[in-house]
């Protein structure tokens, strides 16, 4: 082993994360998403100006894991709560961090209207196609025929509809300035996700409108897979239903992401 002093430190836990160990299951990509958000805030030197709104779901303790001012929203209401904060403190960076049950089901009205108003907040939307915290029930984002504890024979789209594609839907709203979908299933995609999060926060800083990064994520425990199998499942099954891409990049936002 060579002495660390002769080496350059190229990667370490970002300052915007606390030292607290997370309650996430082994291999859960919530941790990756947290780290990327924290790295982006560090790089933009925004840690001291940022307020995080945590969701209800597995990320309910996000306000403990981020070394930021934070608060805890009711289920699905994070965009409304973030609106209240941002309107009072327009020069601060306000983030919501929400899962697919929280954002795409119970909170769909709040996210649509926040985007429609062009609320200059940034939403990190973690889509793993299932309700994690309550033990693996079907979400509006669950894939056709996906087995969950509330669709034990697989999601029957004749009875429960097709998966809700939130990025595509929000992209139709003029208030949305930056809506992209990325994935956390391998290092190359994680790096792209990080860049998108950086851009989304910069879109907010410039007051260009609502920004959201959807992150395809895993739930190894409730999918009944190993963490590595879960990453493969994202690649093999989720990408076709949820294609990665830039769904809305306003002209002003395009200059930032270039």
């Amino acid at each position: 082993m060579i002495p660390a002093a002769e080496l350059e430190r190229v990667y370490e836990r970002p300052e915007s994360l606390t030292a607290l160990h997370t309650n996430y299951c082994p291999g859960c990509t919530h941790g990756v998403a947290h780290r990327l958000v924290a790295e982006a805030l560090d790089e933009l030197e925004l840690r001291e100006q940022t307020i995080l709104v945590a969701p209800v779901g597995c990320a309910v303790f996000a306000y403990e894991y981020f070394n930021l001012d934070g608060c805890e929203a009711a289920h699905g209401r994070a965009p409304a709560m973030a609106t209240g904060i941002k309107r009072l403190l327009p020069d601060r960076t306000v983030l919501t961090y929400q899962g697919d049950g929280d954002l795409a089901s119970i909170g769909i009205a709040e996210i649509i209207h926040a985007a429609a108003r062009g609320e200059p907040i940034t939403t990190i939307f973690v889509n793993n196609a299932i309700y994690g915290m309550t033990g693996g029930q079907m979400a509006p984002t669950s894939l056709p025929n996906q087995r969950t504890t509330s669709s034990p024979s697989g999601r029957d789209v004749a009875l429960t509809g097709q998966p809700l594609r939130v990025s595509e839907m929000l992209a139709t709203l003029p208030g949305a300035a930056y809506i992209v979908r990325r994935s956390l299933h391998d290092p190359a995609n994680i790096r792209k996700a990080k860049k998108a999060i950086l851009t989304a926060i910069q879109v907010q800083q410039r007051g260009l409108g609502f920004s959201m990064v959807e992150l395809l994520s895993t739930c190894p425990t409730n999918w009944g897979m190993t963490p590595a199998e879960a990453l493969t499942w994202v690649k093999d099954h989720m990408l076709s239903i949820y294609p990665l891409g830039d769904y809305k990049v306003s002209d002003a936002a395009r200059e930032l992401s270039a």
Binding site: C71, A74, R77, M81, R87
Partner: peptide
Amino acid sequence: VFLQAESEVAAINMVYGAACT
């Protein structure tokens, strides 16, 4: 700040956020 919310549900949660400041 004045904002007409999309529902009373959103309105009270906006108040919740604003009160946090």
